[in-house]
């Protein structure tokens, strides 16, 4: 992921608005990985995440002249991506929102690398994804924006249109719930490991 300052990003956006393809390419390179990771965790499905990322970027770049420079580009991009995901869920119900477990087993859990370490990491990721799926939509989104995307609380509050305190409350509750779920999964896995040992 290519990090850039807001002023640099603003200049790039201005160039992209004027039709500069290279500037648009820089914008995509800077944000596509984080948006994909976020959508993957939200949807639990790589194909859905890929579709949403592509649609969100196409929509944003087509209407880039409407971007309000007072806000962060990432906030705008993620908001559009989220709306697209919600629309897609409504459109393709129940295919998209049946989520989360079946779709994604991690990028390195392919049959070509069946090592124990890979298996363990794949299981951990599954457990994480399952735990995320157990959260409410708000909790899931807030936890991902805060811990995965490193957004500050204030930015999340603007994005979610809720007070800072409510964001923090969702964050704490979501984290506690995930910890309990993961501990339960961990306990189950230990028992299975002892049986196999």
């Amino acid at each position: 992921m290519v990090r850039m300052t807001r002023s640099t990003e603003q200049k790039i956006i201005e160039r992209a608005v004027k039709g500069d393809k290279a500037a648009a390419e820089r914008l995509i390179k800077a944000h596509q990985a984080s948006l994909y990771a976020y959508m993957l965790r939200i949807s639990g499905r790589p194909d859905v995440a890929e579709d949403i990322v592509q649609d969100a970027f196409v929509r944003v770049l087509t209407h880039l002249d409407r971007f309000d420079p007072r806000y962060r580009f990432s906030t705008w991009l993620f908001t559009i991506a989220k709306r697209l995901y919600v629309n897609a869920c409504q459109k393709h119900k129940p295919r998209y929102d049946s989520e989360i477990v079946d779709g994604w087993r991690g990028v390195d859990s392919a049959p070509s690398s069946p090592t124990i370490d890979t298996e363990v990491r794949g299981n951990a990721r599954d457990a994480l994804q399952i735990a995320l799926g157990e959260l409410s939509a708000e909790q899931r989104e807030i936890i991902l924006l805060f811990h995965q995307q490193d957004w500050p609380i204030a930015q999340i509050a603007r994005h979610m249109d809720m007070p800072d305190g409510t964001v923090k409350s969702h964050l704490h509750r979501g984290r506690q719930k995930m910890r309990r779920l993961l501990e339960a999964t961990e306990g189950h896995r230990s028992t299975v490991a002892e049986v196999w040992a």
């Binding site: 994909y36 890929e50 196409v58």
Partner: peptide, 14 residues
């Protein structure tokens, strides 16, 4: 997360 590079397809669609 290992993300696919969608740059070409996005640029072509735009």
């Amino acid at each position: 997360v290992e993300a696919p590079d969608l740059t070409a397809s996005i640029l072509s669609e735009v």
